[in-house]
Design a protein around this nucleic acid. Sequence first.
DNA 1: CCCCCTTATTAGAACTATTCTAATATATAT
DNA 2: ATATATATTAGAATAGTTCTAATAAGGGGG
Lengths: 134, 134
Amino acid sequence: MTDQKLRTILQEHGLKATYQRMAVLEYLVTHKTHPTAEMIHEDLSNISLATVYNTLDKLIETGLIIAIDIHDDGKRHFDYYGEPHYHVINQQTSEIIDADNFDMAPLFEAARKASGLTITGYHIEVYGVKSENP
Amino acid sequence: MTDQKLRTILQEHGLKATYQRMAVLEYLVTHKTHPTAEMIHEDLSNISLATVYNTLDKLIETGLIIAIDIHDDGKRHFDYYGEPHYHVINQQTSEIIDADNFDMAPLFEAARKASGLTITGYHIEVYGVKSENP
DNA sequence: CCCCCTTATTAGAACTATTCTAATATATAT
DNA sequence: ATATATATTAGAATAGTTCTAATAAGGGGG
């Protein structure tokens, strides 16, 4: 993804297009690894950890990325959220698999009915284990 | 819920029926407040915080309760999971609303297809805000 | 019914992911 | 180009959770 594209995305979401934000956003766009803040900081070694956290907070506020809490490791993982999707988590390995083969609209309608709220988003994690008989 | 019932539930899930576990489980069964470990510890004042955490871990392992991470407050919240349900979270107030008016079986099937795993459970949080025009 | 042994509880220390501070630097509108 | 509000940073601080190791208690076997 070009710098100009990253700059535009950030500005369209009301964020100043700093070098650090462009780098963190590009990292999340191009890595499917659901990294932690520490992992991003290690790879982008010229950006401070505080800035990684600050930037992740801003990107979450805009909805560009989401956070996933894996209870196994106690760390927050982050995921670019360009297209809505959900996560399937292997309980034996903590591997996170992206999936988008399900229409969430009926769930939104059910949630609206149950709560009276205007639905703005969702986080779905489905847990599984390796099949006994593949 | 009677002590005998609590004892039976714990033993059926392979856990020793200690006073502390019965108290924590009963607390979660009877409180719809999605409490944190600290809140449980404050209310059950004769049970140590370490035991509250240990017990919550054990109850999660058995599937009797689940954890919900609210990113707003950085604390883990816990919820008795006697019947499958999902959560609608008011982003303005962090209020957690239980809802069960949606059949998750099709999502399980989609997740199985996407991952090849045998699905064992799910955590769903739907986010919303107060409607503009109620 | 009472041991025995495994498992649970506890207080407090330790850990660590995340947030805060306050000084410096940078983006962007004018 | 300048001003100004906003962003970055290193390091300290915070706080939720986990660990330690000593004590207590559940419950199966006799």
